[in-house]
Design a binder for these strands. Structure first.
Length: 260
DNA sequence: ATGGCTTGCATAGCAAGA
């Protein structure tokens, strides 16, 4: 079972790039972030024509997450528990029925949090605390589960081309990285770092200042696995070349292959 | 660079992103 995460930065602006990537990467499951669309406006027919089921949790203009799956889905839920007043669409879950077993997938778009300090940063940290509680509950089920998405967290200096430039940024502040570590340390495996220790492996390059041409990137799109999912991991890769294409997102897909 | 692109939207300059 190939599971990918991809912040597409607007599904309508990115539909051609998305369809091209689906054709060649052929993920069984694609967790999308920043669809920037309400559920009704999502171009689901074009994706269903390729054999994918489509589950969206959209919102007007901003945020929005979705699950595309060639495998059956069960128990789809929308929204991160813990705050009934939160109207931002940043979390969606489903159980994927694979040939060799079921996997719970959680697609997430963690708040950016800038400027920090400030209310947006407070929201980011509160959101991460809510995610920690949700991860705890899912870990208790002892089932294979994957938490994948745009975390807006640079875990370590080697995950940025210019770490000094991010020192005061909400993506790299010590409090942000500590909150990320608290989640991982509940017992999750960060898929990419479990298999690859190299620096200079990025998943985002800013549109500005020729960041892509100068490889001035950061690694902020992650897949975290429960122990039962980590035991099934066969491969993990970043589809870096997608960033160099026509009308690209500023993020690229990251994916894992599971024996499930 | 208090923002060099890019997106979406009350379609004209903003807000938001990272």
């Amino acid at each position: 079972m190939k599971i990918a995460t991809f912040n597409i930065n607007g599904v309508k602006a990115r539909i051609e790039a998305l369809l091209t990537w689906l054709d060649e990467a052929k993920p069984d499951v694609a967790l999308l972030q920043e669809i920037k669309s309400v559920d009704k406006g999502f171009p689901r027919e074009l994706i269903e024509e390729k054999g994918y089921r489509v589950e969206t949790h959209g919102q007007k203009s901003f945020n929005g997450v979705a699950i595309l799956s060639r495998l059956p889905l069960e128990d789809v839920t929308r929204g991160l528990p813990g705050d009934d007043t939160d109207e931002q669409a940043r979390w969606i879950e489903a159980t994927v029925i694979g040939d060799q077993g079921a996997v719970r997938v959680c697609g997430l778009y963690l708040p950016n949090g800038n400027p920090a300090p400030g209310p947006k940063y407070d929201y980011k940290l509160a959101w991460m605390a809510r995610m920690e509680a949700r991860v705890r509950d899912i870990l208790a089920t002892e089932e294979p589960a994957v938490f994948a998405g745009d975390y807006n967290v640079i875990p370590q200096p080697e995950d940025a081309a210019k770490p000094d430039a991010w020192r005061d940024d909400a993506l790299f502040l010590p409090q942000t990285r500590a909150a990320f570590r608290r989640i991982v340390n509940l017992g999750l495996t960060e898929a990419f770092r479990a298999r690859n220790q190299m620096a200079g492996q990025y998943s985002f390059w800013d549109y500005q200042a020729n960041s892509w041409g100068r490889n001035n990137g950061i690694r902020i799109d992650h897949l975290l696995l429960t122990p039962q999912a980590a035991d099934l991991m066969l491969d993990v890769q970043i589809d870096r070349e997608v960033r160099g294409r026509e009308k690209p997102s500023d993020h690229v897909p990251v994916w894992i292959e599971l024996a499930a």
